[in-house]
Design a protein around this nucleic acid. Sequence first.
DNA 1: CCGCTGGATAGGATTTTACGATGCTGCGCT
DNA 2: AGCGCAGCATCGTAAAATCCTATCCAGCGG
Lengths: 302, 302
Amino acid sequence: MLRYTLRQVEYAVAIWDHGSVAAASAHLGVAQPTLSASLAKLEEQIGLQLFIRHHAQGVSPSPAGLRFLAEARNLLTHAQDLQRDMLAAGTAIEGQLSLASFATIAPSFVPPLIKTFTSLHPKVTIRMAEGTQDELFKGLRGGDFDLALLYDVDMPEDFTVTPLTSFAPHVLLPGKHRLTRLKNVPLVALKDEPFVLLDIAPSRTYFTRILETAGIVPKVAFSSPSLEVVRGLVGQGLGYSILVTRPYGDHSYAGEELAVRPIADEVERGVIALAALRQMRKTRLVSAFEAHCVDFFRTVKA
Amino acid sequence: MLRYTLRQVEYAVAIWDHGSVAAASAHLGVAQPTLSASLAKLEEQIGLQLFIRHHAQGVSPSPAGLRFLAEARNLLTHAQDLQRDMLAAGTAIEGQLSLASFATIAPSFVPPLIKTFTSLHPKVTIRMAEGTQDELFKGLRGGDFDLALLYDVDMPEDFTVTPLTSFAPHVLLPGKHRLTRLKNVPLVALKDEPFVLLDIAPSRTYFTRILETAGIVPKVAFSSPSLEVVRGLVGQGLGYSILVTRPYGDHSYAGEELAVRPIADEVERGVIALAALRQMRKTRLVSAFEAHCVDFFRTVKA
DNA sequence: CCGCTGGATAGGATTTTACGATGCTGCGCT
DNA sequence: AGCGCAGCATCGTAAAATCCTATCCAGCGG
């Protein structure tokens, strides 16, 4: 248990600097008896007489006091540095931001977001992480991330959600599929086709809900948690898929041609949002990044 | 002005270490609401949320909190180190002692005193200084010295004095002086001899007082603040002197023979003492050295 | 000897810190 | 599904710390 306070150290060092209790009192804007008592108490608590009192002539450090005071000043600056850093961390836009992103969203949006934000605020560094929705939730709740970029689907109550933009899901077909003739694909047309499901929460429930809302029971032929594996499977002609994320270039990793078609029906759009733990008080850095994301997607859309 | 206390930091770090307020409470022996309130206040004062609260599952640091806590732990160990050092400085026999000595006493006694003390307490270092009585007083009052070794003559009221030993003053004569025939020299025999005065306070008044008490008005032919210069002057046959300090070997620096004779009269002895500022609370190191000096002179005399 | 300077003390108001008791909420067990 | 448990927050209150104003007291200088 510590037996002295930073306040006491602060006062003692000020008395040292000014050579007298009275001078320190004037300089600190604290009553002289306050300093006198504080010093007496500090001396009692550390069991060391710090100053020699000269009547009407101030005080001077004792030999042992001198050693304490030198060290005490170090401690004081240490404490002041910490305070400065922390006040800055709460109010300035600098330091580290921990951003997590849903795996399929990250590649398209995180790099440009970071690029534009850090060029506005060069003193900011951003740590990135990816994961499934559950991992993002866990990370936010566990304090691993400040913010998470994800789809606004099945969000628990303890998060705040800031919608950024939305995308209509599309049908993904093998390049040579007969339905590629259609400009827009009605969901009923997929009724009997084999379905390749992107199997990550919450995408899984989102996609099946779209189909079931249209009265279709999807025939899940394959499923994978990897977007690129799903695209590869479709490319191989093993079925169709319904996706929101649309990488640049309509080819799978293996090179097969893919066809992307809008859905003719009115369907629930995939809403990309920024989530934060509701109970977390946001630092200015976090708020600034949040605002930046909103801006970014507004200007991208326009 | 610092906006947080070491106590708050201590508690916050403990909460971090134990993963929950309740666990920290049990470990610190402090009521849980106390920690809870202390933490809330700290968070408010530094403007940062440090922990995320999990209902019935403890707390975990937020991303920003983690950075604070890491730094805070450094500060805490810094503060604890300082406290440990200072408690040790007050109670253990280690660290630095600042010892001043009256110039003529130093050469004979300071080296053996230090030798014996540091061999008993190897962790002690001793800084030495020499000076005239006035310089010793000033240094003690100004906090430059812990203790001063001096003659107990004309001591102001604001010092404590610990007598260590005493020496009878002696008459110093040129080697060939006619009075060297006497085994003891009565002071009246010096009545018309030229006197060489060791002119340092308080020796000056001490020696003249001895002579005047015997009804003699000394004929001061020469005076010098240096013991060895006085001995040299006597060696040259320029007069006699009265001294207390008696170096080994009865020759001056220049090599002239000197004769030392006891004083036949009953005279005031020169009392060597250890002085400290009365208002100074003594550290254990200072007390130990004081006790050692008393011991040392008791055994030397025996 | 008197006034000035500067530290210590006294008394009292305010703030802080601590406690016990209790409330509230999510998790896990039955 | 409900219930108990775990764990943080809140409330009320007592004790302690902090700070203020007013005053005292001791050296020093004129």
